[in-house]
């Protein structure tokens, strides 16, 4: 399937024919793919204030799924449900279920640390550790004991190269990551997340602070990674969603309004709300 994908930068929404077509040539739909993450009737409230209500969707394996929607609609919240990061916030109540490869991640006795290692995340705001550039990327690797020094170096280099950051930091690997620019930090966060080779990658607006060239390279990376990883990406950029994703989910006020094949959704959205949002008439 990955071979059928186009280069990032091409506006997939504008092209004709489903890019991620099913085997039988029919337009792909998430239900036909192998499920990776299945969200069933998920509701969440922060201290009694609902942020998600009855969301159900399937994030297919080795596909890029984009989440779009107006600010505050619950995109980040949904993403954080997928690696149980909301557990840490006092007063959060979650109901419904999320399964990863058939395993309920909210079941009792789940190794949450291992879950989070398999479901990597890049946050909306860069949050580098107050350590060197190298140590930031190697952090997740060091948690997995028994990785040799040379392999560690290779993995760090690969991650930084993949995140289009290597050329800028190769000479300052041992300097603090806090002095990188906002965009560099954002790419460092991507490098940090992919260094541990997670199965699933959750990207919360990974390109919000990047220039067009870096954005392009990140999209290229997402595209590449999409062949092997399951990716969920939040973005406010409709073109970006159209360019990089196979499937798109539109959230509005904590509810899933529409979810389907990206091309289909951008060409002829099923709901008026979706159309308004995509075309910028929303609000």
């Amino acid at each position: 399937m990955a071979t059928e994908r186009k280069d990032p930068g091409n506006d997939r929404a504008a092209s004709d024919g489903p890019a991620a077509g099913g085997v039988d040539g029919a337009p792909a739909s998430p239900e036909r793919e192998t499920p990776c993450l299945e969200v069933r009737d998920l509701s969440l409230s922060y201290g009694g204030v609902p942020a998600l209500s009855h969301v159900s969707l399937t994030i297919p394996r080795r596909r890029v799924t984009a989440f779009i929607g107006p600010s505050g609609c619950g995109k980040s919240t949904l993403l954080r449900c997928l690696n149980r990061l909301n557990d840490l916030i006092d007063g959060v109540r979650v109901s419904g279920s999320v399964t990863l490869n058939g395993m309920d991640i909210y079941r009792r006795g789940v190794d949450v640390a291992d879950l989070r290692r398999r479901v990597g995340m890049v946050f909306q705001q860069p949050n580098p550790f107050p350590k060197s550039v190298y140590e930031n990327v190697a952090y997740g690797l060091r948690l997995q004991r028994g990785i040799a020094r040379s392999e560690m170096d290779d993995r760090v280099e690969w991650s930084l190269k993949s995140a289009a950051l290597w050329d800028e930091v190769r000479d300052r690997l041992n300097e603090t990551a806090l002095e990188l620019s906002g965009g560099q930090q954002q790419r460092l966060m991507i490098a940090r997340a992919i260094a541990v080779r997670p199965d699933v990658l959750l990207l919360d607006e990974p390109a919000s602070a990047l220039d067009p060239i870096s954005t392009l390279r990140i999209e290229e990376l997402i595209h590449q990674l999409g062949a092997e990883y399951t990716i969920a990406i939040v973005t406010h950029n409709m073109q970006q969603a159209a360019r990089v994703s196979d499937y798109t989910a539109f959230l509005y006020m904590g509810e899933l309004v529409e979810f389907g094949n990206t091309d289909g959704m951008f060409l002829n959205p099923a709901k008026q709300q979706t159309e308004d949002y995509i075309t910028g008439r929303y609000g």
Binding site: L85, A113, R116, M121, Y139, G140, Q144, A193
Partner: peptide, 23 residues
């Protein structure tokens, strides 16, 4: 210490204790 830093560590698969000692 900002919550984001702790979450960053936990999101990479660190346990609470690992986050405590390393960050």
């Amino acid at each position: 210490i900002p919550r984001a830093i702790r979450e960053g560590s936990l999101a990479l698969g660190a346990t609470k204790a690992e986050t405590l000692f390393r960050i």
